[in-house]
């Protein structure tokens, strides 16, 4: 059977920490995504509200795209620290 990684991977003692953090951050982002969908479905008029010259829909779009990157960077920071802490 040809399973297992294509390259030899070192032991990762930080795996459980990273998994736990990943799950929490996934639910964190999902909450905002669900709110966004719910507003579109149940209160679509609110998405036309003008905030700082933009519609709420545009602000939400920028927010979700930006939040994804910010959370990704934060996740990487904590994962890298955990790898240094647990694997050294």
């Amino acid at each position: 059977m040809g399973h297992g990684p294509a390259v030899k991977l070192g032991k990762d003692d930080a795996a459980s920490f990273k998994t736990s953090l990943g799950v929490k951050m996934f639910f964190g982002y999902t909450i905002f995504y669900v709110i966004f969908i719910a507003l579109n479905v149940y209160a679509p008029k609110t998405m036309e509200t003008i905030i700082f010259g933009q519609t709420a829909a545009v602000i939400w779009g920028f927010f979700l795209l930006g939040l994804a990157l910010i959370m990704a960077v934060i996740y990487n920071h904590f994962c890298t620290q955990a790898e240094k802490r647990y694997n050294s």
Binding site: H3, G22, A68
Partner: peptide, 18 residues
């Protein structure tokens, strides 16, 4: 891609080969 990063990326690398 958030699903991919937080839940799938590292386990996929750990478990799969090709």
């Amino acid at each position: 891609w958030i699903v991919a990063l937080f839940l799938v990326a590292e386990p996929m690398k750990r478990l799969g080969k090709y």
